[in-house]
Amino acid sequence: MIMKNTLILFCLKKILRLMLLMAAVATFSYVLVSFSPVNPVDAYLGTAILKVSPEQREIIAKRWGLDQPPVERFFNWASQLIQGNFGLSTIFNEPVLSVIGKRFVTSFWLMFLAWTLSGIFGFVLGVLSGTFENSVLDKSISLYAYTMASTPTFWVGMVLLTVFSIQLGWTPVCCAWPVGLSPEQATLGQRVHHLVLPAFTLSLIGIAQITLHTREKTIEAMNSDYAAFARAQGEKDLGIAFRHALRNVLLPAVTLQFASIGELFGGAVLAEQVFSYPGLGKTTVEAGYRGDVPLLLGIVIFSTLFVFAGNTMADLIYQAVDPRIRKTGGLI
C-alpha cells in the first residue's frame, strides 16, 4: 500500500515537473527563435528568391501568420500547442508532428542499436578494465576511452565511411534504404545494411563515457571489504568482479546509460548528417538551415521530452531495483 502511494506521488510530481519544464522550454525557445535575424521567407525560398515577386512573398508571410505582432503570434502558437497542434512545417509542407513522427521512427532504430551496443560493450570493457587495474588491458581500454571522449563524432563517421563504404565497399554510402526505393519497399536486410555503419559510429563514441564511469566504480568495488573477504576465501579477481562487484556497479551504469540519451540524440544529429541518414537529426539540421521555425521548435520540445523520458526511466528503474530506495519508500 505504501509502495503504491509513493509510486503515485512520484508520478504526479514527475508530471508536474514535466509540464513546468515544457512550458519553460517552449517559451524560451520561442523567444530565442523570434530574435533570429534569419528571415523565414528568404530561408524558405533559398536560391529561388529572385523569381518571387514581393506580392507573392507577402502572401507566403500572411499564410504563415508573419504579419501579426510577435506577442500575439506567441499566444496563438502556445494555445495551438496545448491542443496538440504544432503547426505546419514550412519545408515539408505537412504537419510538424507527422514529420517528427516519421523521421523519429527512422532515427529510433539507429539510436536504439547504438545505445544497446555502447551500453553492453561499454559496461563489459569498464568492468574488465577496473578489475585488472593498471594492467596492459586496462591501459589500452582507458587510452581508447579517453581518446574517444575527445574525438568528434562526425570525424569518426567520416573515417569509417571512407574505409568501409568507399574503399572496401562493404556498406552503402548513404541513406536508410536503397536509393530510388520508398521505405516500404526496402527489405529488412537492406535497412539493417544501411543502419550498421551509422550505429557503429555512434556506439564507438558512446562507449567512452560508460566505460570510464564503470571502471571507476569497479575499482571502488574491488577495493571494498566484501571483495577483500572474497579474495581471502580464494576467489579469483574475475570471479569477484562478476559474482560480487557486478551488481553494485550495474546500477549506476544503468542510470548513466539512461541519462546519456541527450548525448545520444546529439550524436545522432552528427552521424545522420555524415551518412545522409534521413532521421530526426538530419531533419533538425535542415529545419535550422532553412529557417523552418515551427519544425525546429517542435523538435526542441520533442527532444526535451525524449531526454526527460530517459531520466524518468532511470529514476523508475532505481526505484524498482535498488533495495535501499525500495525499502525506505522512495526518497526522491
Binding site: L21, A24, V25, F28, S29, L32, V33, F35, S36, P37, V38, G262, E263, F265, G266, G267, V269, L270, T284, V285, G288, G291, L296, I299, V300, S303, T304, F306, V307, F308
Partner: peptide, 25 residues
C-alpha cells in the same frame, strides 16, 4: 537551479543549433 535544469533538459546539440539559429550563424 531551475535555469540549470532547463538548460540541461534539452540535448546539447539541439540547444546549440537553436541558439546559433537565433544569432543568425
Amino acid at each position: 537551479t531551475w535555469l540549470v535544469d532547463i538548460a540541461m533538459a534539452t540535448p546539447h546539440l539541439v540547444l546549440l543549433i537553436l541558439i546559433s539559429f537565433a544569432c543568425g550563424g
